[in-house]
Amino acid sequence: MIKMQNISKAFGNNHVLKDFNLEAKKGSSLVILGGSGSGKSVCLKCLLGLLEPDSGDMTINKTRINGLSQKQRTRTFGQIGMLFQNAALFDSLNVWRNVAFGLIEGQGMNPEQAHEIALLKLAQVGLQESVAELLPNELSGGMRKRVGLARAIATEPKILFFDEPTTGLDPIMGQVIDELIVSCVKELGATAVTITHDMQSLRRIADDVVMLFEGRDIWHGSVQEIDSTDNPYIRQFVEGSSEGPITMPLFKLGAKGS
């Protein structure tokens, strides 16, 4: 189980997370929903140990993870898989070396064995063997995401994080990636935390949902409850309306006082 309790994080005077709470049950898929700049990525970076929260507790399987180094995290929970928004593939390495990176450099596996596993994982995300020797800059956006997903699941982690997995993809490729995420999470029996603002993607991958607004968790519930809730923030997000409690500052060219 992944838990965040009263997490606050500020950058100077910019308070990004304010007493944020989250709970992802073991083996479930939790989606953090929120608009741009609501603090979703900071929340994920805190969980990954890339940022240290100013206050609050983070636990995985009841073990406090605040201040733990990556090595200590790996030792305690095994590998953690992460799919980055832009895949974050190592551009100097070819596809199979990207997928096998954690196995070779992290676990010390011999390259031949890692190569076999990388090809298996690539097949699992629907990529052919011929892709293995290509460099990341030779791939399309959807293929890059698939390679990123293959890299995330290569070490068979029990915890998976996804940062806006469908952003920048066409709807069909978005659905393919979502289906791959669901099947990979199910196959591994992993606990997954995803951040997104894509409602269609949320409906496909989420078991539970947390709505994040201005650094606070303002709604928790299951994916089925999302359509029946009368929470005005959720309603506005579901309907994709510009009218509601969530306001976006618009600066019009030539407008007085803008």
Binding site: L48, Q70, F84, A88, F90, D91, F101, G106, T155
Partner: peptide, 22 residues
């Protein structure tokens, strides 16, 4: 710098590899 802004260094972290050493 390119690795940093394209999150490749963060990716290395999540794969359990210390970027300072690597």
């Amino acid at each position: 710098g390119t690795m940093r802004v394209t999150e490749q260094i963060d990716a290395m972290h999540t794969l359990g590899i210390n970027p300072m050493r690597y």
